[in-house]
Nucleic acid binder design. Structure first.
Length: 273
DNA sequence: GATCTACGTCATATTCTGGT
DNA sequence: ACCAGAATATGACGTAGATC
């Protein structure tokens, strides 16, 4: 193993391949928290379990001491935000107070869980046009290509209709096999109703920050049926966007190989998940 | 074997939050 | 503003493993 010793005053910190792999991961996800570090360190240590919270904190403290990691406690979020410094990742520090930051941290936790379960993880390709959709990440485990969406607040029904059409298009082209929605309880309930009868939530619970969500007339029966096959919805995040657990959910190892899109086209019921 | 880092557990300190 | 409890971070210490 290639190991570099970094001296900072009287303190010496070993930078191992594992640490460099952590920096690579931080370059992809940009920002995370202690939970994400726990699972990624566990994965890079060669296991499928997270290290303890203390170990993750110690790793952050060591890397912070030599200037490779920075962190900050943010009021109301819970825990510290953690990111790689410019020296470690070549990227500038993230803005901790953007609305999307909580979402980015949640995506990083999802990424860490998938990788701990043996998937590889990469960012989705950019949307090719206005009707296309870029997911939060892609979890790969040969031969299955799984898009991952982290959904902490519900979108408008019309927006979902557009996204679902884009997902179905990508599925039919053979680009992807499945889509996993990792959500809060609230969003899971909303999406579940949306895919069942298209009614969506009552107006007072269906606020995505842009007013009440109305009935999404654009969601056709065919699209709902297609999405019930293509999507899987798992409510793993709490209201803060934290997914805190020491055990991997069973569904990370469920599903088996997906059928080719051509085969699935005529035989949709119950084959993909 | 000596020395050093990594990581675990337990105890303690600090910070945040919600109620009065 | 103040207080109590919860959440989170930190410190101390022991053990394991790597290196010389």
């Amino acid at each position: 193993m290639s190991v570099a010793a970094i001296y900072k005053g009287a303190c010496m910190v070993w930078i191992t391949q594992r640490d460099e792999a952590m920096f690579d991961w931080l370059r992809v996800v940009r920002i995370t928290n202690t939970e994400g570090v726990r699972w990624m360190l566990g994965r890079l240590n060669g296991g499928d379990r997270p290290v303890t919270k203390r170990a993750a904190q110690m790793w952050c403290a060591r890397m912070q001491e030599v200037g490779y990691v920075d962190r900050e406690r943010v009021s109301g979020v819970g825990g510290s935000m953690i990111w790689g410094t410019h020296e470690a990742t070549g990227q500038s520090a993230p803005n901790l107070f953007r609305q999307t930051t909580r979402h980015e941290v949640a995506v990083s936790i999802a990424s860490a869980h998938f990788q701990a379960a043996g998937y590889s993880w990469e960012g989705d390709r950019e949307a090719v046009n206005r009707t296309d959709h870029q997911a939060d990440g892609v979890a790969l485990r040969e031969p299955i290509v799984q898009l991952v969406e982290v959904e902490l607040t519900p979108k408008r029904g019309e927006r979902y209709a557009m996204i679902f059409r884009a997902l179905q298009h990508r599925y039919e082209r053979g680009e992807i096999h499945r889509v996993m929605y990792l959500t809060t309880d609230e969003v899971a309930g909303y999406l579940g109703r949306l895919l069942e009868d298209g009614t969506g939530p009552s107006d007072d619970t269906a606020r995505g920050g842009r007013g009440a969500i109305r009935r999404p007339a654009a969601l056709t029966e065919q699209l709902k049926r297609q999405m019930r096959q293509l999507l899987r919805i798992e409510p793993v995040f709490d209201r803060r966007g934290i997914w805190e657990t020491d055990v991997q959910p069973a569904w990370l190892n469920q599903g088996g190989p997906a059928p080719a899109p051509a085969a699935a086209a005529g035989e949709l019921e119950g084959v993909r998940w």
